[in-house]
């Protein structure tokens, strides 16, 4: 059975890039363009992992992560933050919001999938 990943990312090119890399390695990827849309999708079906951009319109990634963690159906799904924020304390903020891991942008296309797979268990 294909493993399913939810990708919440507002930039179209980056969404396509991430989807391409994951699908290329056999994952099913469902994408959302912003936080509310992501939360809505996540409520409907079960995912093995959620990739979450931090800089998002409407709701920022930290808020989305807290919302996901607060719900029964997504409370236990691993969340990996992907962000170009690299200021002091960003990592701690992401982990405090409920993320399990943190991948910095720009991603390395050669190692990205294996980094993600670390959190898939």
């Amino acid at each position: 059975m294909k493993r399913t990943i939810l990708l919440i990312e507002d930039n179209e090119q980056n969404r396509y890039l991430t989807t391409f890399l994951l699908e290329n390695r056999g994952y099913e990827v469902v994408s959302a363009e912003d936080g509310p849309q992501g939360l809505e999708i996540a409520a409907k079906r079960k995912f093995d992992l959620i990739l979450l951009d931090i800089q998002l319109p409407l709701m920022d990634g930290y808020q989305v992560a807290r919302a996901l963690r607060g719900r029964a159906e997504t409370g236990a799904v691993p969340i990996v933050a992907i962000t170009s924020y690299a200021m002091a304390g960003d990592r701690e903020k992401a982990l405090a919001a409920g993320c399990d891991g943190y991948i910095e942008k720009p991603i390395n296309p050669e190692t990205f999938v294996s980094e993600v797979e670390r959190f898939l268990g």
């Binding site: 391409f20 890399l21 800089q55 170009s84 296309p109």
Partner: peptide, 22 residues
Amino acid sequence: SHELRTPLNSIIGFTGILLQNL
């Protein structure tokens, strides 16, 4: 720096995909 990274993510990512013949 952050704004510049977002498009760079695409550039480096897609270049990598192309160079890997993916």
